[in-house]
Every structure is written in C-alpha cells, then in structure tokens.
Amino acid sequence: MTSLKKQGNQLASSAFQLEVLKTLPSGTPSFATTLSNHEISSISPLETKILQLNLGYMCNQTCKHCHVDAGPDRKEIMTREVMNDVLSVLREHSFQTLDLTGGAPEMNPDFRWFVEQASQLVPHIIVRCNLTIINANPKYYDLPEFFKQHNINVVSSLPFYQKKRTDRQRGNGVFDRSIDALQRLNGVGYGTNDSNLQLDLVYNPMGAFLPGDQATLEQDFKKELQETFDISFNNLLVITNLPISRFLEFLLASGNYDTYMTKLVQAFNPAAAAGVMCRDTLSVGWDGALYDCDFNQMLELPVATTSSRNIRDFDAEALLNRRIVTANHCYGCTAGAGSSCGGQTA
C-alpha cells in the first residue's frame, strides 16, 4: 500500500478534500450552521498549553485510516533549522506539553537531538509512537531506554486488543509487532504500577462508526492485554476518525460517506464543542507553519492571523486573538463524547 500522494489520488489534494466535505447529505447543516443553531458564535482560543509538532510524514506503516497520508514514500520532514525555531519559542514561552507526532517522529534524523534539547525546556513531552518502529530496525531497539531517560510520555495506537481487527487497519503483522514493542516498553518500566513512566494507548474505530465509552473500553483493553499478553498501560485514549485523507477515501470508496457524516452530525454535542483541543493546542507543521490542529494542517487550513503563521514568527497575543478555522470535518471532534488527541472531551 502506498500513500494517496504516491498513487496520484485526487484525495491527496487538500482542496479536493475540502470540496468533498462541503457536500453533506441532503438536509444536513454545515458545521458553522450547527454552531449557530446552538448559539455558539465561534470556537475561541485559550492560552496555548500544548504545542504539537509534526516532525515529518515519513512512517514505516501505511495505515488505512491515516489522516496524515503518512508512509515510507513520504519525504516531508522537519529540518534542524525549524527545530531550532521551535526551541527558541520554548525558551521564551512556557507550555505545559510538547506533543511530537508524524508519520513516525522517531524516523526524523534529528529526533533524538531535538528531544534532548526540548526536554530541558518543557515539563511534559509526548511522543506519538506507532510501536512497530521500536522493532523495525536495530537502530531503534533502544528507543524504550531513550524514552525512559527523558521521561517521555509514550502514546501509541492500538485499535483493538485482537490481531484481526488491528491488522486490518494498520497492516499485516502490526499487531504481533505492537505486542512485542509494548512488552519491551513494560520491560523498562513503562505503564507499570511501580514507575511514573506513562504509557497510554489510543483506540480508534476500525470503520465507519463512532467509538464507544472510553472508560468501558479501557477496562476491556486492560483486562485482555493483561490476561493474554501480560501487558499493562496507563490510560486508553478514545479518538473518533475524522473524515479526511485516507479515512475519507475509505468512506467514499465503501459508500459510507453519507451515513458516517449523518452519524457525526446527529451526534453533535455542544459540551464537546466547548472542549475541543484546538482551543489550547497549536499544531506546527514540518515546515514550521502554524495550524489550529493537526487535521487543519493536513487540509492546509492555516491559522487565521497574518502576523504569526510560522513558528519563527510566534506571537502569543496575536494567536490568542485569532479566530479558529472550522469546516465540516470538525464534526468529528464534536460528536458524542467528543474527540481530541487526548481522548474524549465531554
């Protein structure tokens, strides 16, 4: 499987995706109209607490639902120059969390250098590790130790506690290799009762349906992974699939687009809208460009401020006064119990 970009698929174009998303099932209101119907004039930003960096779109996996369209054939990567711009901002402003994502962020050749620098400047660093990178190549075998040295919060996708469903979404053999990686992380103390090394897993549905209750699913995952594989972890973060990129391609190809969009719209929850992550998170692209969230980054919808559109021009006040850019894909974060990179929000 290759990326949509490599295939030359028209859905690799963010402009085309936005055109598709403008078309909702008959009688379905746009996201803006739904906000208005609930007397929410706009989603307003708060002080930025989380800086989420996309270190590049290269990945050793090509998952069917990936909103980044990441894969081995993607070459976009954050340079050390951009990383230095980020470090300058971290020196001058305080953030609670630095959230590193990709692709597989560990594949960036400057990943370890950057983590070493950043860990002196920010109290909490998340690495969104796909697990299989840990056993993909001998040069990554020591990642669990590296994460431990820098007290990284490891956040890893595992769509289900069974092989069949996981491999269908993430590729053949991914489940077995993920289990091996989790055991290696447990082996250095991650996710265990007697350490503070945080290991969180991410669940997302394997198709055109909404996720269930986070607490219930966490119980299931903990029981099944412990009993079957002697694996422990801290929290399960439940995330809704947003209708963009490869998941959008799946929805269209399988004839599920209308049903899924209707489901998202009918499940709109004003409380979830109040807790969306874009209010206190800022997304930084591989080239330093700023976005309200990782999804807007993939749709190339930049922050709505002219003076602070790149990390090198970071202006906290201008960003605080910006209008958050929304479109119909935002229904994914406001459905049901809400969805964010930190799990359910409402």
Binding site: K164, R165, G207, L210, T216, L217
Partner: peptide, 11 residues
C-alpha cells in the same frame, strides 16, 4: 451490528 462495534463488542 454497528451499535455492537461502537460498544466495543468483538466479532
């Protein structure tokens, strides 16, 4: 079927 998947039921 959809509801079962949403509730986290396995196949």
């Amino acid at each position: 079927t959809t509801d079962g998947l949403e509730k986290g039921a396995s196949e």
